[in-house]
């Protein structure tokens, strides 16, 4: 059986897949992110590269993915959001990504423009994530662009989407995941998870779907961070016990990482395909988290 990428292969054949996340630099030089890539390279199958995350301008994902792959050999997942490009530019980027050898695409709607550093800019959202998945599906399976025009060479990519198991109401999110899977999403990375019960319930609700779930893992670095996330991040549910432990301990980062290892050990038996480790802007902490998981032997 042939696989488009190492990520696809790992998800199909191995018991547990780990992915990481890197933020492109706010810089014209790729050097500023390569160290991070090297740090996590050996502990992940592939890494996400975010797309103007939280609507802040950084180097484009396309270039970042390509240069990381070329200069470090680390496989990337091209995160593509609908916020900054219309359907023409999005399709161009998929074709370009393929041409540059990038194989994994993660399709997202994107944070709204006012969250970032250019709040007065025009938000595009010409397509939403489901429509973009549909466009990619058409390109791959029918060899046509959205206008129905034939592509000389269709792309061949491994496509995924995002999901948030902690949302309330959860039903629309499940319906949306169904639509995404319908439109060709093969894997889904989740919002960061802290309460295994939430995941268990969710896995139950999506048992009818043929999609690989990678659970988002973000270590809490302080009680303050936990409280901030509960207030500002939809779907993030953090047990009080965790916040208490963070308050009581001296080395919070260590405790945060330790707690996530415990969470990972609990979710392994839940038929998840793996985990996705992310800490915005902190490739060093991603590396530490990965090392801790490896050392613990839970996977």
């Amino acid at each position: 059986m042939s696989f488009v990428s190492s990520l696809e292969k790992s998800l199909a054949t191995s018991k547990f897949t780990i992915t990481g996340e890197l933020t492109p630099p706010k810089s014209a030089s790729i050097e500023d992110v390569l160290d991070g890539a090297r740090l996590i390279k050996n502990d992940v199958v592939a890494t996400n590269v975010t797309d103007n995350p939280t609507s802040r301008v950084v180097m484009s994902t396309l270039a970042t993915c390509h240069l990381i792959e070329k200069q470090t050999g680390l496989e990337t997942i091209f995160q593509i959001t609908c916020r900054d490009r219309n359907r023409l530019a999005l399709q161009s980027d998929i074709l370009a990504a393929n041409a540059l050898g990038i194989k994994n695409i993660l399709v997202l709607t994107g944070d709204y423009i006012t969250m970032g550093d250019h709040p007065e800019a025009k938000p595009v959202f010409d397509l939403d994530s489901v429509q973009l998945l549909w466009a990619i599906k058409r390109m791959q399976e029918e060899g046509l662009d959205l206008a129905g025009k034939k592509l000389k060479t269709p792309p061949k990519v491994f496509v995924g989407a995002a999901v948030n198991p902690g949302l309330d109401p959860i039903e629309p999110e499940i319906i949306r995941l169904e639509k995404k899977v319908d439109m060709g999403a093969k894997f889904a990375q989740s919002q960061c998870l802290y309460d295994p019960d939430v995941l268990e319930k969710f896995m139950d609700q999506i048992s009818h779907l043929d999609v690989k779930i990678l659970v988002g893992i973000t270590p809490l670095l302080s009680a303050g961070m936990a409280k901030w996330m509960i207030k500002n991040c939809p779907g993030v549910i953090i047990p009080d016990e965790m916040i208490k432990r963070l308050k009581q301990t001296e080395d919070k980062v260590k405790e945060g990482i330790k707690m996530m290892v415990e969470v990972v050990s609990k979710i392994v038996p839940m038929k998840v395909a793996g985990i996705h480790v992310m800490v915005p802007e902190r490739a060093d902490l991603v590396a530490e988290m990965l090392k801790a998981i490896k050392a613990s032997g839970v996977v």
């Binding site: 709607t109 939403d128 994530s129 489901v130 995002a162 999901v163 999110e173 939809p234 779907g235």
Partner: peptide
């Protein structure tokens, strides 16, 4: 919907 989504909601809704 500020994003004008047609296959919403996005994962940003809270309460």
């Amino acid at each position: 919907c500020p994003k004008g989504l047609l296959n919403g909601p996005c994962a940003g809704h809270m309460d």
